[in-house]
C-alpha cells in the first residue's frame, strides 16, 4: 500500500469567540493585536480526518498548507505535533487585502505546485469570517469535485473515497473518485492532542524567516534535518498573477463599516423579587403576550 497524498488547508485566526472590550480600536477597526491567534477550529477537524486516513493507510503523507503572515508558521508546527508530515506557508505582502476569491486563487496555485495529491481537506469555514467559501472555490479552481460538510470518513481506497456529510436537516453518504476536495464540519471527530514523539521530532521546525532569528545550534539542526524545514512560498513561487491577488483580485470591497451603536429603547428594569415577578407575569397575561 502506497498510502495517499493529502493536503490539509488550515488558517490561523483571531479568536473571535472570546472578544474582549478592547477588541475594537476607537476608530472602529479591529485591534488584532489583542486577540489571541488560534488554529481555526474546523481546520483541526480537517486535520483529524487526514490523520484517520493516515492511520488506516501507512505511507500516507500529510502536508499542511496555510496562507497568512509569517507567524502563521505556529499552526504548521501545531499540526506537525499532532501528526502532519510537512508544512508550507504561503506568505507575501502582495496577498494583503485578498477576499475569498483572491485567497482561493492563491491557495489553488500552491496546491497546483504541490501537484501530487489525492485529497485536499479543509475546515468548512473559518471563525473570523464564517463564509465557508474558500473550500469550494479552491475545488473549482483545481477543477476537482468537492464534498462539503464532511462528518465521517466511511471508507477510502485507490478508486474512491466515501464520506458521510452533515446537512442542516439530515445526512448524506456520498462516494467520489479522487482527487477531491473535502470540507469538514464541526460535528466531525475532534482532533487528537499533540503526540510526544512528534513534538520531539518537530520541536525545532522553522521557516527560513524564523531561522534568521534562531540560534546557530537550531540553524544547523534544521539544515541537517530537511523535515524541519517549513517551506515559505511567495507570489513568485506559486506563479500567481498579481492582478488576481490582494485588492485588485478581490471583487468584494468594504464600502462602509459601522460600529454597532445600540439605540436604547425604553425599558423597565426589574429585580428578581416576588413582587416584580408577579406584576410582570400579570402584565404579560393581560396584554395577551402569554397565556
Amino acid at each position: 500500500m502506497k498510502g495517499f497524498k493529502i493536503v490539509v488547508l488550515a488558517k490561523q485566526v483571531p479568536d473571535t469567540r472570546n472578544v474582549g472590550k478592547d477588541a475594537m480600536k476607537e476608530d472602529g477597526t479591529v485591534n488584532r493585536a489583542v486577540l489571541p491567534a488560534i488554529f481555526n477550529p474546523e481546520d483541526l477537524n480537517a486535520l483529524e480526518l487526514a490523520l484517520r486516513i493516515k492511520d488506516q493507510n501507512p505511507g500516507t503523507e500529510i502536508t499542511i498548507l496555510t496562507m497568512g503572515p509569517p507567524r502563521a508558521a505556529e499552526i504548521i508546527r501545531e499540526a506537525m505535533y499532532r501528526g502532519a508530515d510537512k508544512g508550507i506557508l504561503i506568505t507575501d505582502k502582495r496577498f494583503a487585502g485578498s477576499d475569498t476569491l483572491a485567497t482561493s486563487y492563491a491557495i489553488s496555485q500552491a496546491v497546483k505546485k504541490i501537484n501530487d495529491y489525492d485529497v485536499v481537506i479543509a475546515g468548512r469555514q473559518a471563525i473570523d469570517g464564517d463564509t465557508a467559501q474558500v473550500g469550494p472555490q479552491v475545488a473549482e479552481k483545481l477543477a476537482i469535485p468537492q464534498i462539503t460538510y464532511a462528518e465521517e470518513l466511511v471508507s477510502i481506497n485507490d478508486q474512491k473515497i466515501v464520506i458521510k456529510r452533515r446537512l442542516e436537516n439530515g445526512i448524506e453518504v456520498v462516494s467520489c473518485p479522487m482527487p477531491v476536495l473535502i470540507t469538514v464540519h464541526s460535528s466531525a471527530p475532534e482532533c487528537r492532542p499533540r503526540n510526544a514523539k512528534h513534538l520531539m521530532k518537530f520541536k525545532y521546525a522553522k521557516t527560513a524567516l524564523e531561522l534568521e532569528e534562531a540560534s546557530p545550534i537550531e540553524a544547523s539542526l534544521v539544515s541537517e534535518r530537511k523535515y524541519l524545514n517549513i517551506q515559505i512560498w511567495t507570489v513568485d513561487d506559486i506563479q500567481a498573477d498579481v492582478e488576481w491577488l490582494g485588492l485588485s483580485g478581490s471583487p468584494t470591497k468594504v464600502k462602509n463599516i459601522e460600529n454597532v451603536i445600540l439605540q436604547a429603547k425604553e425599558s423597565k428594569v426589574l429585580t428578581a423579587s416576588d413582587g416584580d415577578m408577579n406584576t410582570l407575569v400579570k402584565e404579560l397575561i393581560e396584554n395577551h403576550t402569554i397565556g
Binding site: L101, Q133, G135, P136, Q146, T148, Y149, P251, T252
Partner: peptide, 19 residues
C-alpha cells in the same frame, strides 16, 4: 446554497457575500 454559490462565484470570477 453555501455549497453551490462559492463554486459558481469562483468560476464566474465574481464577488460573493455570505449570510
Amino acid at each position: 446554497g453555501r455549497d453551490l454559490a462559492p463554486r459558481v462565484a469562483s468560476a464566474r470570477k465574481c464577488g460573493l457575500t455570505a449570510d
